[in-house]
Simulated scan of single mutants.
Amino acid sequence: MRCSGECSTRPSECQGRAHVNARITLVSHSSTSATAAAAFPAGEPLDVRGRSWAVAARGLLPRADHIGSGPAPACGQTCDALGLVAEVDPTLADWDLGRWRGRTLDEMAAGEPDAVQAWLADPTAAPHGGEPLVALLARVEAWLTTVPVGHTIAVTGPALVRAAVVVTLGAPPGAFWRIDVPPLTTTDLRGGPPRWTIRATGVALAGPRRPAEGVDGLDEAH
């Protein structure tokens, strides 16, 4: 970044500082059958409710310079309903929960109580055979360093939005379980790599969200 000479910061202190002309709008995809069942996501498409919400929100997002989407069907269908032409980004793929995908937390807690307890207590644990929490956080942190100048919209799963909040705050991994991201809500980050700030999170795009409408298997893990 070229120094304009209009600030009070000495040039030697400017080196390595964050760009301040970048913005990310993270959009959690709209509702699916997993949302309604409080199950871990398994690539489900939008349900009727989710399509209705997304169609109602068409045109409400601000203009963007870059639009990315996770590869999950719900992400692509959310983009279509919102009128977004997005490039699929594998980095925005939903959290891989291995053989627990499509199951509810209650089911897993009843069948594998020790495994579930280890997963909730240890961010390096992956008893489901998928991606541990620390790997998810590292993936999202790496993605945040690649976001270009301008406004980027990224449509992805709620777990990635939660991870972005944790990483941006520099919070411990356990903070992930204390963040709620309902479907079809936005989280706004400003600044740029390596320093982002959170302007807002969990903002509904269309209509009010009752608490029960924002629950999935991950939210149940609180």
Rank of each mutant, 00 (worst) to 15 (best):
F40A: 09
A56R: 13
G50I: 06
L61D: 10
P62S: 11
L26F: 13
T78D: 04
D47T: 02
R23D: 09
G68P: 00
F40Y: 11
S28A: 15
S33H: 07
S31N: 06
D80R: 13
A39V: 01
I24T: 02
S33D: 14
D65M: 05
A56V: 09
S30L: 07
S30Y: 06
L61R: 14
P62V: 10
T25Y: 08
T35K: 01
D47I: 07
V85H: 14
V55H: 11
T25R: 08
P62I: 11
R63Y: 06
L26M: 09
A56G: 15
A39C: 05
A34I: 05
A72E: 15
S33Q: 15
G50H: 00
D80Q: 14
A38C: 10
S33A: 15
W53H: 08
L61I: 02
L82S: 07
T35E: 05
G70D: 10
P73H: 13
G59E: 05
S33I: 10
C79A: 10
A54R: 02
R51V: 13
H29Q: 09
A81I: 10
G43P: 01
L46M: 04
V20D: 15
L46R: 02
A86L: 09
V48Q: 13
S28V: 04
L84Q: 04
L82C: 09
V27K: 05
A74G: 14
S69C: 11
A54T: 04
L60Q: 15
I24H: 00
S52W: 00
T25E: 08
I67E: 03
A34G: 14
T35Q: 06
C79G: 05
N21D: 14
L46C: 04
A37D: 11
H66W: 10
S52L: 11
L84P: 01
S33G: 15
G59W: 07
D65T: 05
S52E: 15
V27H: 00
L46Q: 04
L61M: 13
S31V: 10
A39D: 00
R63G: 09
L82N: 03
A39Y: 02
V55A: 13
D80T: 14
V55F: 08
T25L: 13
V55D: 12
T78F: 09
V20R: 14
A22M: 00
P41C: 06
G83S: 09
S31E: 12
E44P: 00
A72N: 12
E44K: 01
T35R: 01
P73M: 08
D65S: 06
R51Y: 04
H29T: 11
R49Q: 10
V20Y: 08
R63M: 11
P73N: 08
G76S: 08
W53G: 02
A22G: 12
L26W: 07
P73W: 14
A72K: 10
V27R: 08
H66P: 07
A57I: 12
C79S: 13
A56L: 06
G68T: 14
L60W: 12
D47W: 00
S28D: 03
V55G: 04
A34M: 06
S28F: 03
R58F: 04
P45N: 03
G70Y: 07
F40M: 03
A54I: 03
R23L: 03
L84W: 01
D47A: 01
A37N: 04
T35L: 15
